[in-house]
């Protein structure tokens, strides 16, 4: 019954099914290559206890420190809030730099503002060279992970909070530039063409004809990246920057799982809040 139905199914389904099976097998192949035996899936001695404690702590996050702290230490809740504030601060600062980078490089790396007819060959050659340079720069910025940028800046400058900002700004700027240039190229050209008929120059067509068409999608994407930046900013704490990740890593090291969940809930709440905000804005952008 099953095989008859498959024979009658259109061929593209069969090939996609084939692809699917291929994906499964290649996953197994990769596993063999890693030499990670399935015995590695068995918990090590005491491993299960750690997991049990971790998830038991989930239901009762710490409202007070689990071990004695020096007098005058702010309460754990205000420590968590301060961590959340710094997480947000680094994300917002990094994102504002990334936007500047993204808009500039996105413009230079897109061909949407080119006016093929009016320019001389020399100008066209120069434009192409700038385009290529922007593309290479975008790729370089994007392909190094933000944590690795952070590691590079730590090595170059030592621990300085501006390092966290720039570690977010570079890869996010590259990603924004890539997506912005794609959105600009896919934006409907009708109004730009109408402006051209009225005698507008290529930059005028771009600014008043194309950008307004692409702006809703660009803003929605930028906000989505802001959510991601908050996550990244938190994780940068693992390298000593004073965000939520720092407190999380410390709680993990001290086996204070209930404290860990306090910080983790704080992060999850922050991310969910931003997700809700972004969803409410996206509904208005698209409408």
């Amino acid at each position: 019954m099953m095989s008859r139905a498959l024979e009658q199914a259109p061929p593209w389904w069969r090939s996609r099914l084939g692809l699917f099976v291929l994906l499964g097998f290649s996953g197994l192949g990769a596993l063999l290559l890693l030499e990670a035996p399935f015995s590695g899936l068995l918990p090590q001695a005491g491993g299960l206890r750690i997991v049990r404690e971790f998830f038991a702590a989930m239901l009762e996050p710490a409202l007070d420190y689990e071990s004695p702290v020096p007098a005058g230490t702010p309460s754990i809740l205000s420590a968590a809030l301060a961590g959340a504030r710094r997480t947000l601060v680094f994300a917002a600062a990094g994102m504002s730099l990334a936007l500047v980078l993204g808009v500039t490089l996105g413009f230079l790396g897109s061909s949407a503002w080119w006016d093929e007819e009016r320019h001389t060959r020399a100008a066209a050659g120069l434009r192409r060279a700038v385009w290529l340079a922007a593309r290479v720069l975008i790729t370089l910025m994007r392909s190094v992970h933000e944590l690795l940028w952070a590691v590079l800046f730590l090595a170059a400058f030592g621990l300085n909070t501006f390092g966290a900002v720039i570690a977010i700004a570079i890869p996010y700027g590259g990603t924004l530039a890539k997506i912005f240039s794609e959105l600009l190229e896919e934006a409907p050209r009708a109004s730009a063409r109408a402006l051209a008929q009225l005698g507008a120059g290529s930059v005028q067509q771009f600014v008043f004809g194309l950008v307004p068409r692409a702006l809703p999608d660009m803003s929605a994407y930028a906000f989505y990246r802001f959510e991601c930046a908050v996550r990244s900013s938190a994780v940068l704490g693992f390298f000593g920057f004073p965000t939520l990740g720092y407190s999380i890593a410390q709680a993990f090291e001290n086996l204070h799982y209930r404290e860990l969940w306090t910080y983790l809930y704080c992060l999850i709440a922050l991310v969910l809040l931003l997700e809700l905000w972004s969803a409410s804005l996206r509904r208005r952008f698209v409408a």
Partner: peptide, 15 residues
């Protein structure tokens, strides 16, 4: 954004 650059958490001067 304005707050994040002005609240003193980003040690630009120390750079």
């Amino acid at each position: 954004v304005v707050y994040s650059w002005t609240c003193g958490e980003i040690e630009l001067g120390q750079l």
